[in-house]
C-alpha cells in the first residue's frame, strides 16, 4: 500500500513537471545553472572514474588473458567494448547518483523544511516548474555528455595503463578496439545515460520536494534518493540490456 502511494505521488510530480515544462520563462535561468552544476561540475569526478576504470580493466584483462594463444588486441577489444556498452554509463551513473542525486535531494529538502517552497508558491510561482523541471532536464541533457567524457577517458586510461605497464602496446590495443567497434554500442550507452539521468534527478527531486521534518528528514530524503537512484540504475541497466541487446 505504501509503495503504491509513493508511486502515485512520484507519478503525479512527474505529470506536473511535464505539464509545467512549457513555462520556459520560469525555469530558463535555473536550467542554465543546473546544466553547469550537473554537467560541468561533474567532469572532474567523471574523468577520474573513467581513467581508473579503464586502467584497472586493462591490467586485469592482461592478467587474466595472459596466453600465447590470445592476441593482445583482444584486451583492447574487451576494455573498449566493456566501457562503451556498460562501464562508462553504469559506473558514472552510480557515482552521479551520489554526487548529483544527493545534492538535488538535499537542496530541495532543505527548501521544503525551511518553507522556501511554500514561499515560492505563495508568491505565485509554480514551484514544480521552477525547481523540478530544470533539474530533471539538466540530468537528461548532461548525462549523455558525461557518458562521452567517461568513455573517452575510460578507453584512454586503458590504453595508457597498457602502455605504461608494458602489458599491451598501444597499436594492439587500438587494433582490438577498432576491430570490435559497433556504433550501436554508443547508441546503447547514450540511451542508458539518458535514462539514468532521468532516474537520478527525478527520484532526487521527488525525495527532496516531499521531504518532511527538520535536518533528520532532509538526511533521510538524501539517503533514500541516493540508494533508490543506485537500485533503479541497476534495474534499468538490466531491463535495457534485455530490450536493446
Amino acid at each position: 500500500m505504501y509503495a503504491l502511494k509513493e508511486i502515485g505521488k512520484y507519478s503525479t510530480l512527474l505529470y506536473q513537471a511535464l505539464r509545467s515544462s512549457t513555462e520556459w520563462s520560469t525555469y530558463r535561468k535555473n536550467l542554465f545553472q543546473e546544466l553547469v552544476k550537473v554537467g560541468y561540475d561533474s567532469v572532474p569526478i567523471i574523468v577520474l572514474v573513467g581513467i581508473f576504470t579503464g586502467s584497472v580493466m586493462t591490467l586485469q584483462s592482461a592478467y587474466q588473458l595472459e596466453s600465447a594463444f590470445i592476441p593482445l588486441s583482444t584486451i583492447g577489444a574487451i576494455v573498449s567494448e566493456s566501457i562503451l556498452i556498460e562501464l562508462a554509463a553504469v559506473i558514472s551513473g552510480l557515482v552521479l547518483a551520489g554526487k548529483v542525486g544527493a545534492r538535488v535531494a538535499t537542496e530541495l529538502g532543505n527548501m521544503r523544511v525551511s518553507e522556501q517552497i511554500d514561499a515560492l508558491e505563495s508568491m505565485g510561482f509554480n514551484s514544480v516548474s521552477f525547481l523540478v523541471v530544470p533539474r530533471v532536464l539538466a540530468g537528461i541533457l548532461m548525462f549523455p555528455v558525461l557518458y562521452i567524457v567517461a568513455s573517452i577517458f575510460g578507453v584512454g586510461g586503458g590504453l595508457a595503463a597498457g602502455y605504461f605497464s608494458g602489458s599491451v602496446p598501444p597499436a594492439d590495443f587500438l587494433q582490438g578496439a577498432r576491430m570490435y567497434f559497433y556504433p550501436w554500442n554508443i547508441v546503447f550507452g547514450f540511451v542508458k545515460s539518458f535514462v539514468f539521468g532521468f532516474i537520478i534527478t527525478s527520484i532526487a527531486c521527488y525525495k527532496g520536494y516531499y521531504a518532511t521534518g527538520g535536518a533528520e528528514g532532509v538526511g533521510k530524503s538524501t539517503t533514500n534518493a541516493t540508494v533508490l537512484g543506485c537500485i533503479y540504475i541497476l534495474l534499468a541497466d538490466f531491463i535495457l540490456a534485455v530490450l536493446l541487446l
Binding site: 525551511s114 522556501q116 511554500d118 505563495s122
Partner: peptide
C-alpha cells in the same frame, strides 16, 4: 506572506 522562519532563499 511572512513565514515563521522567514523562508528567505
Amino acid at each position: 506572506v511572512l513565514f515563521q522562519g522567514s523562508a528567505l532563499f
